[in-house]
Design a protein around this nucleic acid. Structure first.
Lengths: 242, 242
DNA sequence: CGTACGTTTGAGACTCCTCAATTTCTGTGG
DNA sequence: CCACAGAAATTGAGGAGTCTCAAACGTACG
């Protein structure tokens, strides 16, 4: 999942097999790579929504800023992910999106998607699948953030990122990237940064994981999975109907 | 939004204008009304997902039961709402669905939806809109449940239900139905039932609202809206691109 | 080498939870 | 219409978890 083109078809392949012509059809949608700098906000809540994006390099996140100054991170995107597809039917962005690090984004105008709708009900279903998977991630996070302890929340989010990393690259062992600061983890988990720090320290002292410079070394994946009471691996349960 | 047919087109109209033939096309999808009893669970997490539903009478909710015995309510459905559309691309239900009261549901097999995809890119876009609106509600709830006080959570949920009620029936003044017990409100808000009770009592004593027999009498909508820091009315911001 | 940012640690306060008892509501049968 | 049983809601008291504020420490980058 690098700078090269083909991210879109790569991503869609998670949801069902693609013929060569369908791959070409999808990859033909991708615009040129736009360079994005760390911290850059490239969509803002309320902006006109005329295209969706594919993150071809770097990590990003979507967020909402509230009146009281707090920020909530809704989604964390990793390279290869599709961004903003759920806003396709609407005129405006429902959340802002910013880069966690330097990267590249390729845009696809919504009208190209409508062409797909006209041409291929198979690809239409896949678009639905992409959007639904993201919604499933959101639901899952809602469940895990509402009535759960800080330990459970942190464990859940780290395990989600671990699972998604493995989905993209099966060769991943126990080290994976988490380029979020503790402030950002806190904003994603609804905790204070201070308490995120305490929780991570506790996990380190218990020998569950170690964190350094944007990487997590998972010493005891089982313990983390149990702590987060992960029911099943979402991407295993989600299978596209043929 | 009663027992009669036509719920589907009624619901879709929220997202864009429909021609007569499109209305007929949609309403032709609805199966016969199935009677459901209060408390009845008609989909269970993991069940095969072969159809979506339209709630033609009564209220319902979707939920997840966790290993530790807690339940989390993800969505609250009111008459006219579409249920389980987001599971269209998948084989299994991602959450269970149960009735809050007696009612009726009409089912539509997923393959009928694929026919729509083939026939009409306009209706395809509308399907996307229906799913995306529900996702927007979920995101909104995620934001409001994560780092907010009990007062803010309760205010937010009640105001969401108030707004959605008004979306369906503009003549609503200040009384609207909320057929959820405090236990169920707690399960939707990630609070204990005890604290929901205390919070509602506080609102009553402050003259914000009164609750009786599944109805809420809103004495001071502005106070509730401010308490929940509602940014804007979701359904105003969401407009389908033509 | 200095500055800015991110992380760690400590102390006290506050919100919300749990447990338990009591009261009110709702529906049913006499 | 009233009596009763079961469910739902209220109220109280004590405790656990997380927050805020503040200071010290570590790390990256100019």
């Amino acid at each position: 999942m690098g700078q090269q083109e083909g991210c879109l078809s790569q991503h869609f392949k998670h949801y069902g097999r693609l013929s060569d012509s369908e791959c070409r059809r999808l990859d033909g949608l991708e615009g040129p790579a736009l360079a994005m700098a760390k911290g850059q906000v490239f969509w803002r809540e309320g902006d006109a929504a005329r295209e969706f994006g594919t993150l071809s390099r770097g990590w990003a996140y979507s967020f909402r800023d509230l009146a009281d100054g707090t920020r909530h991170i809704l989604e964390v995107f990793m390279p290869g992910d599709v961004i903003g597809l759920r806003e396709f039917p609407f005129k405006q962005r429902l959340s802002s999106v910013a880069m966690l690090e330097d990267g590249e984004i390729r845009l696809t105008p919504h009208r190209r998607l409508i062409e797909i709708f006209r041409d291929s009900s198979r690809l239409t279903s896949l678009c639905f699948a992409v959007a639904s998977y993201q919604q499933a991630l959101l639901s899952e996070r809602l469940v895990h953030l509402s009535r759960r302890s800080a330990r459970q929340r942190v464990a859940y989010l780290l395990f989600e990122l671990y699972s998604r990393t493995k989905r993209n690259d099966d060769s991943i062992e126990d080290r994976f990237r988490v380029p979020l600061s503790q402030q950002q983890l806190a904003d994603a988990l609804g905790l204070s940064p201070v308490h995120v720090s305490r929780t991570l320290t506790a996990f380190r002292q218990e020998g569950v994981l170690r964190r350094l410079r944007g990487w997590v070394h998972l010493l005891d994946p089982g313990a983390l999975e149990a702590e987060g009471s992960i029911v099943g691996h979402l991407h295993d349960e989600i299978e596209l109907v043929e």
